[in-house]
Structure formats: C-alpha cells, structure tokens
Amino acid sequence: MLNTELEIVKQRLKRVGYTLYTYEEALEALISDTDYIDEEIEIFIFEAGETYSFQESVISMKNYNDLEAFHKDIKANIVQSKHYKRQTAWSKKLYDYAKLNNFAYTFVIADNK
C-alpha cells in the first residue's frame, strides 16, 4: 500500500489478529475455506483515490467463479456508505475502526483507485 494511513491501520489490524485485504486476497481467502460457504460475511471497504469513502457490505458467501462477480455482489449489498472530502477524516475513521476492534468476523478491503 502506498497510503501511509493504510499502512498504519494494516499494522494495527495485524496486532489484533485481522488482515487488510485487496479484493483478490479476500476472495482467495474466502474460497480457500469452505466454512465460509453460505455464511453471512461482513465486509468493510475503504477506498482511497480522488475521493475517500467507507462502505459496509453484508453478503452471503457462495462459490464465486471470478473476481468480477464477487466485486459486483459486494457493491450490490452495501448497507452503509460514507464519503469524505478530506483524507484526514477518512484515515481517522479507518483508525477508529481498527482501534475499537470492530472487524470481528469481517474482511477489510482497501482499494487504492
């Protein structure tokens, strides 16, 4: 990750036993463990680019054939979305979530556009 804030959060998540994934890594992890099939999975997506956003998606895990179908399903099942104009507000949200340990039974995805 090129983003300094994402690196900080990545380290904090690692200390509490979670991982910051890309979409590809999250799909690979979910596919490799059959215990996730038909389970409800909560996914937090943090996007950095021209704008900054936070989204929460809840999906029922199924056998995905490709990354595009997985990505489309996540986007179709967003239950909460917030956009930030300033990077500092967005990075504070990332840090707060990691600090509060709100990622139990979730996958955290960072998307640098």
Score class of each variant (00 low, 15 high):
Tyr84Ala: 00
Ile109Val: 10
Ser81Gly: 05
Asp73Glu: 09
Ile78His: 04
Met61Tyr: 09
Ala69Val: 10
Leu13Ala: 07
Tyr84Cys: 03
Glu47Ser: 11
Phe54Leu: 05
Ile43Pro: 00
Ala29His: 15
Asn112Tyr: 12
Leu30Cys: 10
Lys92His: 06
Asn3Ala: 04
Tyr36Leu: 11
Ile45Ala: 09
Met1Arg: 04
Trp90Ile: 02
Glu7Val: 13
Glu42Tyr: 09
Glu28Ser: 13
Glu47His: 12
Glu28Leu: 07
Lys82Tyr: 07
Gly49Phe: 12
Ala76Met: 02
Glu40Gly: 09
Glu39Thr: 15
Asp35Gln: 13
Ala89Arg: 13
Asp111Lys: 07
Trp90Glu: 06
Asn102Tyr: 07
Arg86Ala: 03
Ile109Thr: 08
Tyr21Ser: 11
Thr51Arg: 09
Leu27Ala: 11
Tyr84His: 04
Thr4Gln: 11
Leu100His: 09
Lys99Val: 05
Lys92Arg: 08
Leu20Cys: 11
Tyr97Val: 06
Asn65Thr: 15
Phe44Trp: 03
Lys85Tyr: 01
Lys93Arg: 15
Gln87Asp: 03
Ala98Glu: 04
Ile109Gly: 00
Val9Thr: 10
Ala48Phe: 08
Thr34Met: 10
Val16Cys: 01
Glu5Trp: 14
Ala76Gln: 12
Ile45Arg: 14
Ala48Gln: 11
His83Leu: 00
Glu47Lys: 13
Asn63Ile: 12
Asn102Glu: 02
Ala69Lys: 10
Asn3Thr: 09
Leu100Arg: 11
Ala110Arg: 04
Phe70Ala: 04
Thr88Ser: 01
Asp33Asn: 15
Ala98Gln: 03
Lys72Thr: 14
Tyr64Lys: 09
Gly17His: 05
Tyr18Cys: 01
Lys14Met: 01
Thr34Cys: 10
Met61Ala: 15
Asn77Phe: 01
Lys75Glu: 07
Ala69His: 12
Glu7Pro: 01
Phe70Gly: 05
Tyr36Lys: 12
Ser91Ile: 03
Ser60Gln: 12
Leu13Val: 06
Phe54Trp: 12
Ala98Trp: 02
His83Trp: 00
Arg15Lys: 14
Trp90Asp: 02
Leu13Cys: 08
Asp96Pro: 00
Asn3Phe: 10
Ile78Arg: 07
Thr106Ile: 01
Ala26Ser: 15
Glu7Ile: 14
Thr19Arg: 11
Lys99Gln: 06
Tyr21Lys: 15
Tyr95Ser: 06
Tyr36Ala: 13
Lys85His: 05
Met61Gly: 05
Tyr95Lys: 14
Ile78Tyr: 03
Phe103Ile: 03
Thr106Glu: 01
Glu7Gln: 15
Phe103Val: 04
Glu40Cys: 13
Glu47Val: 05
Ile8Ser: 07
Trp90Ser: 02
Thr106Pro: 01
Ile43Val: 11
Arg12Ile: 13
Leu67Gln: 13
Lys14Pro: 01
Lys75Gln: 06
Ala29Cys: 08
Asn101Trp: 04
Thr34Leu: 13
Val16Pro: 00
Asn3Met: 04
Met1Ser: 09
Thr88His: 01
Ile31Thr: 14
Ser91Pro: 00
Leu6Val: 07
Ala26Lys: 09
Gly49Tyr: 09
Ile37Met: 15
Ile45Ser: 07
Leu100Asn: 13
Thr4Gly: 03
Glu5Val: 03
Glu25His: 14
Ser91Lys: 02
Tyr105Ser: 09
Leu13Trp: 10
Asn63Phe: 08
Asp33Val: 14
Phe54Cys: 05
Tyr64Pro: 02
Lys10Ile: 05
Asp38Gln: 13
Val58Trp: 01
Ile31Cys: 07
